[in-house]
Amino acid sequence: MVETSSVKEFQPNVKALRANSLRFERGSRRVLDGVSLSLEPGVLVSVLGANGAGKSTLMSILANELEAESLEPDTFAVTLDGEALQALGVLRQARKRAVLPQMPSLGFDLAVREVVEMGGYPFPHLDTGMLESLYWRALAYANAVALADRRYAGLSGGEQQRVQFARVVLQVLAARASDPQAGLYLLLDEPSASLDPSAGRALLAATRQLAQDIGVGVLLVLHDVNLAALWSDRIVLLHDGGVLAVGAPCDVLTPAAIKSVYDADVQVIPHPVHTGTPLVVFSR
């Protein structure tokens, strides 16, 4: 692994969601082998890699949907603010970490309000007035205020994705209202995949704003290297079950690294609009 970040990984007594040298196998195939990652409050980290690199598997492990082991002796595979993730219990996890899967499913014809307010379920102590305020704030972050009076089943796929995003936004807003000092984390697996370019940009801008406004750590799984370059503080580049590089976008997104991961020839040039951001230009 090429370490290009100045961020100190795995420091004790520091708030973070951490994967500690993960190993995960499916049958005889080792999907992840020694993968480490640290997500701190207020930081936006993107995970990139080719199809089958283990991005969604890593996300599922961090969401406690899959169980992995650590290659480090006497070390928990995943820790949340220094505690073993699996030891926290479902409610404590939900009060510190929200997850938006790649294809969220909902089999009931609910009102948009009912879907979004699911994010408030872990916080029954919050009064109706507070939840009402958080509901409208969440819709605003998700650019979904115009959908407030609609039925979820009648929405397009992109509109449903924005509503689901509002749901997890409400969850972290409620968590911050409940505990102003808590470490909070938001895990999003390809959140812009079903959105048009404008809506996708707005969603990623909202994640950045959330990180700044309430100090939530955001982990994004993305396929678009230029979106990752534009919005991320740090990029984790997965390859062959491990971490090829981790660091700032300008350090990780090099022609050599992209050739290794995607088998594609590229030019990396300075972004014409955003100073300090690389722009990856793929060859035909």
Rank of each mutant, 00 (worst) to 15 (best):
L58R: 13
V2C: 00
P255Q: 04
A94G: 09
Q11H: 02
A228D: 12
V168D: 10
Q86M: 10
G107L: 11
S194D: 04
L66V: 11
L22S: 09
R26V: 01
V169D: 01
L62S: 10
L238F: 05
V7L: 15
L203Y: 05
L230Q: 14
I61T: 05
V172Q: 09
V112F: 08
T254R: 15
M59F: 14
T4P: 00
L131T: 07
G89N: 14
Q209C: 11
R23H: 05
D74V: 02
D265E: 13
L106H: 13
L210M: 07
A166M: 11
R137T: 11
V266S: 10
R92N: 14
A148D: 03
K96I: 04
P104K: 06
T4R: 08
P122F: 12
V116T: 12
Q171Y: 09
S156Y: 04
L88W: 02
G241M: 06
R208P: 11
V225E: 04
L71N: 08
A142D: 07
I61H: 13
L184D: 09
L139C: 08
P104E: 07
Q161I: 00
G54I: 11
A84Y: 00
G34N: 12
L17P: 05
D224N: 13
G200L: 05
R162M: 07
G119C: 09
A166F: 07
R30V: 14
L279C: 02
L106N: 10
S194W: 00
N226Q: 08
A264R: 15
L186Q: 09
G49A: 11
L187M: 10
S46E: 05
A199P: 00
V221W: 01
